[in-house]
C-alpha cells in the first residue's frame, strides 16, 4: 500500500507524557476516507487495538523501529491472515474461531513468547489466539500450562502454527 493512502498519527509524545491517546486514534480512524489506512506511531505494540480495529474490518502490520518505537499500519483491504476469520471455529476441539491473530515470524527469541503471553492477557477466558512462529517456542509451553491455557501446535511449511485457548483466570 502506498504511503499516500495512509494517514499518519504519532501518539508517542502523548504516551510519554502519560496522556491517553485512544480518543485521538478512534477519531483518526473515523476520519479515514474509504480505502485509506492509518499509520500509527507508538511507544509499544498496541495489542488491544488489533481487536478493537479488527472489529471495524481493519487489518494490521506491526514493525518495531526501536526500543520504545513502533510503527503499526492499519489497512482496510487486509490480507486474509491479518483479520479474524468469521469461521465457526474448530468443530473437532469445540474451540471458537480465533479472536486475535499474531504473526511472530521474523522476531528473535524470546519476542514471540512475550508477544503471545501479552496478547493472551487481553483476551477473555475461553477466547482463542492464533499465532504463527518461525520455530517452536519451547519455553512458552510450561508457562501456558502454568497459567491454565490450552494449546495445539501444527508444523506447516510456512511456520509453526499455534492455537491457544485462554483458560479461566487464576487467582
Amino acid at each position: 500500500m502506498a504511503t499516500e493512502e495512509m494517514v499518519t498519527l504519532d501518539v508517542r509524545e502523548d504516551l510519554r507524557n502519560g496522556r491517553e491517546p485512544l480518543r485521538r486514534i478512534l477519531a483518526a480512524v473515523d476520519a479515514l476516507a474509504p480505502g485509506q489506512g492509518l499509520r500509527l506511531l507508538t511507544t509499544f505494540e498496541p495489542l488491544p487495538l488489533y481487536r478493537l480495529l479488527g472489529g471495524r474490518g481493519l487489518g494490521h502490520e506491526a514493525r518495531r523501529l526501536g526500543v520504545a518505537d513502533w510503527e503499526v499500519r492499519f489497512f482496510p483491504d487486509a490480507p486474509a491472515e491479518a483479520t479474524a476469520p468469521v469461521a465457526q471455529g474448530d468443530p473437532a476441539s469445540g474451540w471458537p474461531a480465533p479472536a486475535m491473530h499474531l504473526d511472530n515470524r521474523g522476531l528473535e527469541p524470546p519476542e514471540p513468547m512475550m508477544r503471545i503471553l501479552e496478547a493472551l492477557e487481553t483476551l477473555a477466558p475461553g477466547e482463542v489466539l492464533a499465532a504463527v512462529n518461525e520455530r517452536e517456542p519451547v519455553f512458552l509451553f510450561p508457562e501456558l500450562a502454568a497459567r491454565g491455557h490450552a494449546v495445539t501446535v501444527e508444523r506447516r511449511d510456512d511456520g509453526v502454527h499455534l492455537t491457544i485457548r485462554r483458560g479461566a483466570d487464576p487467582a
Partner: peptide, 17 residues
Amino acid sequence: HGARDGPAGARDAVAGP
C-alpha cells in the same frame, strides 16, 4: 528506556475492548 509496556500498561494507555 528499555522496560517494555505489558498489556497492563497498554490497557491503561489505550483502553482495550
